[in-house]
Computed example of a mutant assay.
Amino acid sequence: MKTADILFTKVCKFIEIVLISIFGLLVVDVLLQVFSRYILNTSFTFTEELARFSLIWISILGAAYLSAKREHLSMDFLYQKMGVKSQKKTLIFIEICVFLFALFIMVIGGLNLVYTTLHLGQLSGTLRIPLGYIYAILPLSGMLMMCFSIYHFAKIRTNDITD
């Protein structure tokens, strides 16, 4: 196994662990909210905000993970009808599009959002967490997606991957 493949596998495993942890936190948070509301007849104020932030992180980091595993949503009817050369060109085009989207929208836009919210000192309403920390998942996931696109591009070029 090549060094890039080993690194790719380890990063994917780490992301899996983080996603599972966030999901576990989300489940405990929602159960706590239900328990407090229906058993204690009161409501903890932080649970809704924590659930919202957990969903943001699990969604955006999950998108990066799916990009790594090449399991993102796609319609492949036309792709399946193409010849091998056309399929390879299409895969390269897709990886370039994913890379550019991750670069401009997620990394550059995300860093701008993080900088702005940290610079303005915006805090979340209940947890009082700087919103820049919450939004930091956007450029982080974008950088991961860019790395995964480069990895897939290299695999496509060396014919290690075809779909």
Rank of each mutant, 00 (worst) to 15 (best):
C12E: 08
C12K: 06
V98A: 10
E71S: 09
Q87V: 06
M1E: 14
I17G: 06
T158N: 06
K81M: 14
F104A: 13
M75I: 07
L118K: 11
I6L: 07
L7H: 05
M143H: 02
I134Y: 04
R128W: 00
R52Y: 00
V98M: 13
V98H: 12
I15M: 11
V18W: 11
V114H: 06
F46M: 05
I137D: 05
Y79M: 13
K69D: 10
H119N: 14
F148E: 08
P130L: 04
T42Q: 09
L40N: 03
L118R: 10
S149K: 07
I134E: 05
A4C: 04
S74F: 11
L55A: 02
F23L: 05
A63W: 09
P139W: 13
E95K: 14
S43D: 04
L73S: 01
Q87K: 12
C12L: 10
L138N: 04
H72M: 09
A64N: 05
R37D: 00
L61N: 09
G110T: 12
V34I: 03
F46L: 02
K2A: 04
C12P: 07
G109D: 11
Y133I: 14
F8Q: 01
Y151D: 08
Y38T: 00
Y65S: 11
F153H: 00
L7N: 03
K2C: 02
L120Y: 08
V34F: 04
R37M: 01
R52T: 01
C12S: 05
L127T: 05
I17P: 06
R37N: 01
M146Q: 08
K85R: 07
V114S: 04
I58E: 08
N112C: 15
